[in-house]
């Protein structure tokens, strides 16, 4: 009977995943400008956009700018899609992530179209978003994103987008 290899220590696994995610997110200036961060549980990502005055569109209400909401949902879709694209190579070791300053993360998916459905005005509070990849083929992907604030059951916006996937080498 062949001996099964010992499972990777959990700290190593977490450190690898968190550092790749960080490299992915911190590499995009506009994501930093909006202050968007991602929380991770296993492979599931939740986008978090902490409230700041720069995000206001209507100063009288006040409400989040529709453009900030759209950008937040689009960022969540792109990062979730890119994360899913990287995941397998990251876990198998095909993507060498030992030195992230030199790691060649794949190109980001390119947005073809993005449709935002504004359900209620965005409050001056933190916003959260989660994306579901409905289809991801070799060239195209279709993604749905849900955005909420205080209550998970009360979405303030949702969106659907189509993307061109980066081409795998070889």
């Amino acid at each position: 009977m062949t001996k099964r290899p010992a499972p990777e220590p959990v700290q190593i696994v977490k450190q690898r995943r968190d550092s790749v995610l960080r490299a992915l997110v911190e590499g995009v200036p506009y994501v930093q400008f909006l202050g968007i961060a991602f929380e991770r549980r296993g492979d599931e990502l939740t986008g978090v956009m902490p409230f700041k005055d720069d995000l206001i569109g209507n100063p009288i209400l006040p409400a989040l700018h529709g453009g900030a909401t759209a950008a937040f949902l689009e960022v969540t879709a792109i990062i979730t899609l890119s994360w899913a694209f990287i995941w397998e190579d990251m876990e198998s070791g095909a993507l060498d992530v030992s030195d992230l300053s030199h790691v060649h993360l794949p190109r980001l998916p390119k947005t073809i179209d993005f449709t935002v459905d504004y359900l209620r005005s965005g409050l001056p509070r933190d916003a959260y978003a989660r994306a579901r990849i409905n289809r991801s083929g070799r060239r195209y992907a279709s993604v749905h994103v849900e955005g909420w604030q205080d209550n998970r059951d009360r979405m303030f916006a949702q969106a659907t987008g189509h993307f061109v996937m980066p081409q795998r080498k070889g």
Partner: peptide, 13 residues
């Protein structure tokens, strides 16, 4: 290249 989200904000405004 400018992020699509910034273009969205411009379009919306």
């Amino acid at each position: 290249v400018i992020h699509g989200g910034a273009v969205s904000a411009l379009m919306d405004t």
